[in-house]
């Protein structure tokens, strides 16, 4: 690689603000790696920046999220906006490697957009740890909106709902997506519901199913808790039909949040959850460190041999850790 010394975070941020894509890409790499440099970058950003719009797009595999995101990018470009996308895919729990293949379906439409693939890196079943810090960085750099696209499986939807201002849940007709989403409690998290592949038979049924489930949610008080009945949009990602309406619905959601204290509340909640996640991650690192000391290995051997109870071992190890502020993660 280039023999010249890499510029520091502050210099990179300066260049990135000027529109240099290499610097943006580099900053994301640094944020993603965590540690002191990531903290330094976080420190360089304004503390409570409520600008920008983070849109989370999630849904079952095969619902057409990537194609839809691609069409959304084209629509945004037509409107003169410069969006960024974080396309999140899982890392292998065994090797830590990942195959990130979502951007292919966006690239054809992504002229001018910034698209970045991100692996979950050890955040099993959840969203990549670096997503909130990265979306904050991208929003700060003027990308509007910042779209986080991820396959909705397990914990991810919950995470994305806390990392996004607007959560878009994509379903498609004929696959029982709507029913599954309802079972998993996802309808509570969605701000906009999409029935993609609306040119297929069953699209109207899918819409009706969603309406019905929202009605039931209204009766049970779900809508009162979420504050607003999610809009349902029908799209055809292969042709772009309905995509302007989807964008309008997402923008309207952002506007309605900003009109009250919704946006502030959401971002406060997001930061709270981010703190919890950071804390957990740091504690886990601390635990790993403690287990890997001579004392830790001794205790572990005793527990394995059955000569010490896990509860006693835990007390010993905790006492050995002592109070020390975790750095980064």
């Amino acid at each position: 690689m280039s023999p010249s010394p890499s510029p520091g975070p502050a210099a990179l941020l300066r260049v990135a603000r000027g529109g240099d894509r290499r610097a943006v890409a580099r900053l994301i790499t640094l944020v993603e790696r965590g540690g002191d440099t990531a903290l330094e970058i976080a420190g360089l950003l304004p503390a409570a920046d409520d600008a920008g719009h983070v849109i989370g797009i999630t849904g079952a595999p095969g619902a057409g999220k990537s194609s839809l995101t691609g069409r959304l990018l084209a629509c945004l470009a037509d409107a003169g906006r410069t969006p960024a996308v974080l396309a999140v895919d899982p890392s292998s729990p065994l090797t830590g490697g990942a195959i990130l293949g979502d951007r292919v379906r966006m690239d054809g439409f992504a002229a001018g957009a910034f698209v970045r693939s991100m692996a979950t890196r050890g955040q099993q079943g959840g969203l990549a740890f670096a997503v909130p810090a990265t979306t904050r960085l991208l929003a700060h750099l003027g990308f509007d909106p910042v779209i986080v696209e991820t396959t909705g499986v397990g914990q991810v939807e919950v995470d994305i709902a806390s990392a996004a201002d607007t959560t878009v849940l994509v379903t498609s007709p004929g696959w029982g997506d709507a029913v599954q989403a309802n079972k998993a409690g996802l309808l509570e998290l969605a701000d906009v519901l999409v029935v993609n592949k609306a040119d297929r038979p069953g699209a109207r049924d899918a819409r009706r199913d969603l309406e019905l489930m929202l009605d039931l949610g209204h009766i049970s008080g779900l809508e009162a808790r979420a504050g607003r009945r999610p809009e349902i949009v029908l799209t055809v990602a292969t042709t772009g039909d309905g995509v302007p309406e989807l964008l309008a619905a997402a923008d309207a959601h952002r506007a309605s949040l900003a009109a009250g204290d919704g946006l502030v509340a959401r971002r406060r909640r997001g930061r709270r959850l981010e703190l919890a996640a950071t804390l957990e991650r740091s504690l886990r690192a601390l635990v790993d460190t403690a287990m890997d000391t001579p004392a830790g290995r001794r205790v572990l051997a005793d527990v394995e041999a059955g000569t010490m109870s896990p509860a006693d071992a835990c007390a010993v190890l905790l006492a050995g850790m002592g109070p020390q502020p975790p750095r980064g993660a």
Partner: peptide, 30 residues
């Protein structure tokens, strides 16, 4: 798959790419 199983992160673009398009991706993906 070989690279993934060796612990690397692979941004897979697949077929029909142009040198300019791949370069733009390499830039964004660092």
């Amino acid at each position: 798959r070989i690279l993934r199983d060796a612990g690397m992160e692979v941004v897979y673009l697949g077929l029909r790419q142009t040198p300019e398009g791949v370069a733009a991706v390499a830039e964004q993906e660092d």
